[in-house]
Amino acid sequence: MSERDSGSSGRAKAASRAKASGQVSFGTFVRKPVERTDGKAREAQANVANAGSEAAEMRIETAASWPADAVEVGAIVDAYGLKGWVKVAAHADAGRGGEALLSAKRWWLMKGQERRSAPALQAKTHSDSVVARLGGVADRDVALALRGSRVYVSRSEFPALEADEFYWVDLIGLDVVNLTGLNLGKVASMIDNGAQSVLRIAYPATDKNGKPVVGERLIPFVGVFVKTVDQAARQIVVDWEADY
Rank of each mutant, 00 (worst) to 15 (best):
D243L: 15
A63E: 08
G7D: 09
R17C: 09
A64T: 13
E3V: 10
V130R: 04
G135V: 10
P159Q: 00
E72Q: 05
G181K: 04
D170T: 09
E61G: 01
G10N: 13
A15G: 05
V176G: 00
A79P: 00
R150W: 12
G95S: 06
P33I: 06
D141E: 06
Y152P: 01
G27E: 07
R17T: 14
K13F: 05
W168M: 04
A104M: 01
G148Y: 10
Q113V: 07
V198G: 04
G52I: 03
S2T: 00
S197P: 04
G194M: 00
P67E: 01
G39A: 04
I76D: 08
F26G: 09
E54V: 07
G10T: 06
V237W: 14
A232K: 13
G27N: 11
R31K: 15
A46E: 05
R217L: 11
R234C: 14
V222H: 11
S8T: 14
Y80P: 01
F225H: 14
R96Y: 05
V71D: 01
V86S: 08
V48H: 03
R31N: 10
S65K: 07
K105I: 00
V176S: 01
S53Q: 02
A205S: 15
D243E: 12
D164W: 04
A104D: 01
G210F: 14
A90T: 04
A75M: 06
V214D: 15
V153A: 07
V176W: 00
V224N: 14
T180F: 04
W168K: 02
G22R: 15
A163M: 10
R42Y: 08
G112M: 08
G74H: 02
K87L: 10
E54F: 03
V237Y: 10
V177G: 02
W107S: 03
I201F: 03
V237T: 15
A120G: 12
A232M: 13
H126M: 10
A100S: 08
V226R: 15
L182A: 13
V86P: 07
E216W: 13
D175L: 08
V177L: 00
Y80G: 01
W85P: 01
G10H: 05
A232S: 07
G136D: 12
A70V: 02
S6G: 10
S6W: 04
R133Y: 12
